[in-house]
Design a protein around this nucleic acid. Structure first.
Lengths: 104, 104
DNA sequence: GACATATATGAATGTCTGTTCATATAATAG
DNA sequence: CTATTATATGAACAGACATTCATATATGTC
């Protein structure tokens, strides 16, 4: 349990992570990457967004160190950097699914 | 593990929850409420924001059903509606703390 | 070299929203 | 009823940011 005091700086960092996570396109990218390494082309296809948009959002994920890149020839392969993303997905997913059952 | 397919509607709902969670003031409010029921005055004090701001953000939390209100006289007592918020806090907090240790 | 493919990046724009200020509502006290 | 306290709400504004369009960079191929 997160008990008692949390200083504002920590809350700010939590806010940053949540901000990065709270975008449709980035959620789809991260979800795709839960399955493992993917290159940009595969992500574009799976996410169903434009090349530019996917690339921009990958930049956001990179800057926030949620993903890493590995270049191979002209391809760029991305992976999730963080096991916490799995847990974050789980928690949020469970919340949504539970709300569907009860209140809608 | 959240495996394979998640439809866009579910991702949208996840986005909504994360959007609500990804705000400094609301995070402080939710953190305060992790300790239990609080009235608005107490929240204003603990969060250190203006009366108007706290009230507005409580409205956001209410509309998204993350909190419930109980009125008693002129006071309004708020509680967290959802055990998932605990887990969400934990996961995000752990992520931030781990990043502090390693990369900064 | 020229050309094609894969990815990244910059600028521009429109939308969304966090915050403040002012005001309203509701309950209690005198 | 008036005054005061606790909370809510509306309007307005400024800043952030998701998306698109156009263009740049880099690698591989011929």
């Amino acid at each position: 349990m997160v008990d008692r005091k949390i200083d504002d700086q920590t809350i700010e960092k939590m806010e940053e992570l949540l901000n990065v996570a709270s975008d449709f396109t980035r959620l789809k990218i991260m979800h795709a990457l839960l399955q493992g390494e993917k290159n940009v082309g595969e992500l574009i296809e799976e996410v169903g967004a434009s090349q530019s948009l996917v690339s921009h959002q990958l930049q956001v994920l990179r800057k926030n160190r949620l993903v890493s890149v590995r270049k191979d020839g002209t391809r760029a392969y991305y992976i999730l950097n963080d096991e916490h993303i799995n847990k974050l997905f789980e928690v949020v997913y469970e919340h949504v699914k539970e709300k569907e059952e009860t209140g809608e």
